[in-house]
Design a protein around this nucleic acid. Structure first.
Length: 920
RNA sequence: GCCCGGGUGGCGGAAUUGGUAGACGCGUUGGUCUCAAACACCAAUGAUAGCAAUAUCGUGCCGGUUCGAUCCCGGCCCCGGGUACCA
């Protein structure tokens, strides 16, 4: 008879559910703590063992905080909109809502079996109209606000309109293009269409034409973070450039705040670095170069204004709007051809051919603002239309790309910063003395940059400027399964729906495909227009719309009047601990921070940053097993003998392999093809090979939690996932080790029971040794939880149980606190023991246990004694000894004679409580 | 190419960042219990040499700082992630 985990786990899961043990309400008598998991997209495949890793860690931390007296908010929900459900709908005609519902039910069932402490009354789903009501509401607010650069905050667009009406925009400083350049009476005389167009340049949600990442296979536009190396992240389809009208979010307005906010966050350095690079701040200057031929000046952005005297030519992006105007008749054909060539090329092609230099002279010349020299104007792909002003001053001596271009076209190279050898390569470093540079000669680079900016501003030919790499976020998707925009078009102009009419529900359509004329699927919907007959927007919102403020909604999920009530947001503030994957670094985690900052400006969010501390759980890799089939036969050779044959490795289902030994009968049944398989064994066994790979169906290495829970129980699974290694580190899943944790759980149970599995705990006074073990463990485990080192916490429990087991300890004074200590890790086991200990309330309500430092400190210290750094022997000395006493005791020790070899030590280093080193 | 991480037994990892390298677990080997198996328990387990006590070597490689380096510094190699002409 042993611990019956199946019965016990089922019993307490039902009890917790019935009693709503994990229900959370605002409680002003307790400090709050908010623990959040990145909510999952419920895929059809269900959870595999990699998914719950982060959930288990956050659950342990939640339960720990709860025991410590915090009022813990720990919710869960679903990021329910997404491409897979829609792709499935296209193939089968099944409504995505139906598959999504089914997948959610499956996820819930799996999650419930692991014993999480979620407050399910707070569940949200992004596809629920009650939820996306507030996603739509936020979009309306974005449309109706602009970013005021003077106050660094979003302001209602009506304030901007008012200022345009009264001063022509004298008092406001809106972020956007172009800068207001009209008087109040100019504005008043404009018609509504002109006004709308100007305002569109400042709204935080705006409609614009641009080149977008178009994915023909998915039939939609993708955001930058959804594209990787020219292919869609989801599905891996090719992506091309296409000019389209799209909704955008003006996230660039918040670039500086997004950058500054990183300093305040307790996130990993690597994650913050990824965001910094993605935001890509660079300081420099914009400078205007005169183009006499068209009587205009072209703007360039440079981070190296100090090298302005090294500028020997200019390069424009092929898409630059002035290319046509400035090209001389003589070069017209060649330029047109090059522009056409560039526009034809996909991002993919451009990327794979980075090294190939191409470009075309336009026939035009610009005038150097200081030297007055004529600089030839080129166009080339290596200058991007979307960054800076889409034009550069080329300084070949100090920029490797300009250098390559100059060499290719035989252009002049002038050294202006000493330190390199410009005959061999450009010298890009930001250090050295300026030469050939008129008023900058003799300066250090850093000083020269400042001086150049000063002169440029003084001369009125430019200004110091900061540029960001971050682009505005494309917010339209040509898909069905997403939030509808709360937008209709009146005479072609976008208008927001009144807030009272929200939510605008997603309509039914007959097919989940674009229309015959190429319009998005929503154009198929019948009556997709306002009661007045104005057509609704046919695009839907992207995946990140619904996931950008869900943490706020969890605070007050059933509020029909507001996104979140003042009271709830004031109490819960923001997320204290957020656990999820690092793959969201440039997507969700940027958008959510932006969205939160906007809501903060509105007074809806309570803090500048949504996620104070963030832990990235590392990916769980799969461990695949292989069998080796001898070519052309149905005979399989064991791993150790495979070299003697001409055999090819084949993936085999890891579920029919134990400790790398193949279950031959199961193998024959696994696939009809193998039913007559024969085996060449070694030592009577068929040994499989193994490899670490991605966990994937096609590799037959997927482990789902249900099977493991069935075999070992949820507590074992929880402990084992934590025991695997540091939470943030990627590591392979290897089921082989789970037996050890399973053994530990049963040993733990046996501390409280006798050989016949009968309850056996008594009230005898514990010994000092027993107390020491307990208090040492409390201290270690508590420390480990605080620093999210759950793998070492589990080992500490193992050591504790081994030690108590040796002492046959079955004393309440030890075992009762131990149950509380382990309850965050193994809640079912702990709950069962708790009630058997005579309590009549859930262990989750029990107070956390404290360690007593006096019980941990020992009276003696074992000093390792080393001679010249090599450990030779150990001496046990009283803990109170001073350095001199320790030194004396060590030199007097009988073992010391041998190592001293009769010499006098040169030096003796004593580190109290740690070590003694004798130098001879 | 550039920017971050990281290389420790047969395997996952520990050593809470300068103080006994290899905790804990898996695996392996031998043993106890059993008619047998399962379960459980005990012992050994970095490498090399030796019957042994013990000795030498050992944290990717080469060098340095230090009484002492897995940890700090310099150079190199390999693996993982991010990024991709961002002026």
């Amino acid at each position: 008879m042993e611990y019956n985990f199946r019965e016990v786990e089922k019993k307490w899961q039902e009890y917790w559910k019935e009693q709503k043990t994990y229900k959370t309400e605002i409680d002003h008598n307790k400090p709050k703590y908010y623990v959040l998991d990145m909510f999952p997209y419920p895929s059809g495949a269900g959870l595999h063992v990699g998914h719950p890793l982060g959930y288990i860690a956050s659950d342990i931390f939640s339960r720990y905080k709860c025991h410590q007296g915090f009022n813990v908010l720990h919710p869960m929900g679903y990021d329910a909109y997404g491409l897979p459900a829609e792709q499935y709908a296209i193939q089968t005609g099944q409504h995505p809502a139906v598959t999504t519902e089914r997948n959610i039910a499956r996820y819930r069932e799996q999650l419930d079996r692991i014993g999480f402490s979620y407050d399910w009354d707070r569940e949200v789903r992004t596809c629920d109209p009650k939820y996306y009501h507030w996603t739509q509401w936020t979009f309306i607010q974005l449309f109706n606000h602009y970013y005021d650069q003077k106050h660094s905050a979003a302001r209602p667009i009506v304030e901007l309109v008012h200022d345009f009406e009264t001063t022509g925009g004298f008092n406001t400083h809106p972020f956007g293009e172009p800068k207001p350049n009209f008087t109040a009476s100019d504005w008043q005389q404009m018609d509504q269409a002109q006004k709308n167009q100007i305002l569109m340049g400042y709204r935080l949600a705006y409609l614009a034409d641009t080149f977008v990442n178009w994915c023909p296979a998915l039939g939609t536009v993708l955001a930058n973070d959804e594209v990787k190396e020219g292919f869609s992240v989801r599905g891996g389809h090719p992506v091309e450039r296409k000019k389209m009208q799209q909704w955008f979010l003006r996230i660039t307005a918040y670039a500086q705040r997004l950058l500054d906010g990183l300093e305040t966050l307790d996130w990993s350095d690597s994650l913050k670095e990824i965001q910094r690079n993605w935001i890509g701040r660079s300081e420099g200057a914009t400078i205007f170069f005169q183009l006499p031929a068209i009587n205009n000046a072209i703007e360039v952005f440079t981070t190296r204004p100090d090298t302005i005297f090294g500028a020997t030519f200019m390069v424009l992006a092929p898409e630059h709007e002035w290319v046509k105007d400035l090209t001389t008749p003589q070069y017209r054909d060649a330029v047109e051809e090059y522009v056409a060539f560039a526009s034809r090329r996909s991002d993919r092609e451009r990327m794979t051919e980075v090294k190939a230099i191409s470009g075309q002279f336009t026939g035009a010349f610009a005038i150097h603002p200081f030297s007055g020299k004529k600089l030839p104007v080129y166009i080339s792909e290596y200058v991007l239309a979307g960054y800076g002003s889409g034009a550069i001053m080329a300084v070949p001596a100090h920029d490797s790309r300009d250098y390559a271009f100059a060499k290719h076209f035989g252009l002049e190279i002038i050294e202006v910063v000493a330190g390199g050898n410009i005959y061999e390569a450009s010298y890009d470093a930001k250090e050295g003395i300026l030469v050939n540079s008129d008023f900058l000669n003799g300066m250090q680079v850093q000083d020269a940059i400042a001086e150049a900016v000063r002169r440029i501003e003084e001369k009125g030919i430019g200004t110091g400027r900061i540029n960001f790499r971050l682009r505005d976020a494309i917010f339209s998707r040509q898909r069905y399964w997403g939030e509808p925009f709360p937008v209709y078009y009146r005479d072609g102009h976008p208008e927001m729906l009144p807030e009272e009419s929200l939510p605008l529900p997603l309509p039914q359509i007959d097919k989940y495909l674009p229309t015959e004329t190429g319009e998005p699927p929503l154009a198929r919907a019948k009556n997709w227009h306002t009661p007045e007959g104005w057509n609704y927007e046919v695009n839907t919102m992207p995946g990140f719309a619904g996931s950008s403020a869900y943490y706020l909604r969890y605070m007050d999920p059933h509020n029909t009047q507001q996104l979140v009530s003042k009271e709830a947001v004031e109490y819960w503030q923001s997320v204290d601990l957020y656990v999820g994957g690092a793959e969201h670094a440039t997507g969700h985690l940027i958008y959510a921070r932006f969205w939160n900052k906007f809501l903060f400006d509105l007074g809806v969010a309570a803090t500048q940053e949504p996620f104070k501390k963030l832990i990235n759980q590392g990916m769980i890799q799969g461990r695949s097993n292989f069998v080796y089939r001898i070519k052309g036969t149905n005979t399989f050779v064991s791993h150790g003998l495979r070299q003697q044959f001409d055999a090819i490795p084949l993936h085999v289902d890891v579920n029919i392999v134990h400790q790398d030994i193949l279950d031959q009968e199961a193998f024959k049944k696994w696939n009809p093809e193998y039913k007559d398989a024969e085996f060449i064994l070694e030592n009577g066994k068929y040994l499989c090979g193994w490899e670490i790979e991605k966990m994937s169906k096609s590799f037959h290495n997927v482990q789902n939690p249900d099977d493991l829970i069935e075999r070992y129980g949820a507590d074992t699974l929880r402990l084992y996932e934590m025991f695997l290694g540091p939470i943030e580190q990627a590591k392979p899943w290897d089921t082989n080790g789970i037996e050890g944790v399973f053994r530990f759980i049963r040993k733990f149970w046996r501390l409280y029971h006798n050989k016949n599995n009968q309850w056996d705990v008594n009230d005898t006074e514990p010994s000092l040794a027993e107390l020491k073990i307990l208090h040492k463990t409390i201290k270690k485990v508590s420390d480990d939880i605080e620093r999210f080192s759950f793998n070492t916490a589990v080992s500490s429990f193992m050591i504790c149980v081994n030690e108590l087991g040796e002492l046959n300890c079955n004393k309440r004074a030890i075992l009762e606190p131990l149950a509380v200590l382990i309850s965050p890790f193994a809640p079912h086991l702990a709950e069962e023991l708790w009630w058997q200990l005579g309590h009549n309330q859930s262990i989750t309500k029990a107070k956390y246990v404290q360690w007593d430092e006096n019980l941990i400190t020992d009276d003696t210290v074992v000093y390792p004694v080393s001679f010249n750094g090599k450990t030779r022997f150990k001496v046990e000395l009283p803990a109170g000894y001073s350095a001199i006493e320790v030194e004396q005791a060590v030199l007097d020790a009988p073992e010391a004679v041998k190592w001293l070899e009769g010499k006098t030590p040169k030096k003796v280093i004593v580190v109290l409580g740690k070590i003694v080193n004798v130098v001879i």
